[in-house]
Computed example of a mutant assay.
Amino acid sequence: MRTEQEMFDLILNTARNDTRIRAVIMNGSRANPNVPKDIFQDYDIVYLVTETESFIKDKDWIKVFGEPVIFQFPDEMDKNLGYETHFERCYGYLMQFDDGNRIDLHVETLDLVLEEVKSDKLTVVLMDKDNKLPKIAPPTDEDYWVKKPDKALYSCCCNEYWWTMLYIAKGLWRDEILFSLDFLNNWVRPQLFKMISWYAGILTNFSCSVGKCGKYLDKYLAKAIWKRYLKTYPAAEKEAVWNSIFIMNELFEEIALKVAEEFDFCYEYADAKRSREFAEHIRQLPKDAKEIL
């Protein structure tokens, strides 16, 4: 596997030797001082170019970066699927190489870079041949920190949780495991994730990022809470999903109460109690039942 230094040398030397490339910018995790380095970190690179057409017309130029496992051209895919694209301003190459390194590279014109360069605070200028780029503050992930909830957001989160949780119960009674898992992971879990992220924010004075998909949550939660959170991820088995629902319900209420206390919000105990009891009733409902109640 090529070293980090070898990869940066390759990326920058390619830019130096190509008159069409006028600047090099790095984004993503390698620009984030709070992300621990590991062997799977991508190189998120933007080449500021004089034009994009020649880079798109002849893709052989990317062979300099190494032997591929697989490439993806997301803008090309969007175009083929009928989405709006702007090849004249931006084009992307996602490249996984056979030595384990990966580069997510975009070629962008100056006007687009100038529009976007200050909007992402995880930006590092690696090269600027013409001194056209503005001065950029040291990179920070503060744009990704957990934000404080307001009363309306908190209330909607609680209501959505207890409302959609009952879809899981209904699906399980019908033996519709895929339906139930879909609601658990795509409707109910996002509310738990939101609530537990706010709790992590409280613990850190809202100066933390929990990362994509909550991958850093375990850094901020007590081990006991983290273990309970992991138990909300069930196998695709009916009883396992039932058990995960009730673990999730207990955890959601416990964390929601902590958040409510911190911000002096009102937690709707009655809604939660009725929803939990109704879910338990559905769990005990015979398969040949003619009425729910």
Score class of each variant (00 low, 15 high):
Thr164Glu: 14
Leu230Arg: 12
Asn185Pro: 00
Lys231Ile: 00
Cys158Phe: 01
Asp150Leu: 04
Val46Asp: 09
Lys121Glu: 11
Val113Trp: 03
Val146Glu: 03
Pro139Ala: 05
Asn27Thr: 10
Arg283Ser: 06
Lys194His: 09
Glu67Pro: 00
Lys212Pro: 00
Ile282Gly: 02
Ile56Gly: 01
Ile56His: 01
Lys215Phe: 00
Glu84Pro: 02
Gly214Gln: 08
Leu48Ile: 11
Thr85Lys: 03
Tyr229Asp: 03
Glu239Leu: 10
Ser275Thr: 11
Asp98Gln: 14
Lys147Asn: 08
Leu285Val: 03
Asp182Ile: 06
Ala289Thr: 09
Leu181Met: 15
Ala23Arg: 02
Pro33Trp: 06
Glu108Asp: 10
Ile45Asn: 02
Pro36Phe: 06
Tyr267Gln: 08
Glu254Ile: 01
Ala236Tyr: 13
Pro36Thr: 04
Glu142Ala: 11
Ala256Pro: 04
Gln96Arg: 13
Lys129Arg: 15
Leu81Asp: 12
Glu51Met: 05
Lys118Thr: 13
Trp226His: 13
Lys147Ile: 09
Asp111Arg: 05
Tyr154Met: 10
Phe71Ile: 10
Trp242Asn: 03
Cys157Ile: 11
Asp78Ile: 00
Glu4Arg: 14
Asp18Ser: 08
Ala272Met: 11
Val24Glu: 04
Ile56Asp: 00
Val210Gln: 03
Cys208Ser: 09
Asp143Thr: 07
Asp288Ala: 13
Phe263Ser: 02
Thr52Val: 06
Cys213Trp: 14
Arg2Ala: 10
Met195Asn: 01
His86Arg: 13
Glu261Gly: 11
Leu172Cys: 09
Pro138Met: 03
Met1Gln: 08
Phe179Cys: 07
Phe278Cys: 05
Glu160Cys: 07
Leu293Arg: 10
Ile177Phe: 08
Ala272Trp: 08
Cys158Ile: 11
Ala235Ser: 13
Glu4His: 08
Pro33His: 06
Asp9Val: 06
Asp218Glu: 14
Thr14Phe: 14
Lys148Ala: 13
Val210Met: 04
Val125Ala: 07
Thr14Leu: 07
Lys273His: 12
Phe183Cys: 11
Phe206Ala: 09
Ser209Met: 04
Ile247Phe: 01
Asp128Ile: 07
Asp18Lys: 06
Lys63Thr: 12
Leu221Cys: 05
Val117Glu: 04
Cys157Thr: 15
Phe40Trp: 15
Asp78Phe: 12
Cys90Gln: 12
Thr19Lys: 14
Asp75Gln: 11
Phe278Lys: 11
Cys157Gly: 05
Leu178Thr: 13
Leu112Phe: 09
Phe263Lys: 00
Arg16Phe: 10
Leu221His: 04
Asn185Asp: 10
Ser180Arg: 01
Phe252Trp: 06
Asn80Glu: 14
Glu250Arg: 09
Ile245His: 00
Asn185His: 14
Trp162Cys: 03
Leu293Cys: 09
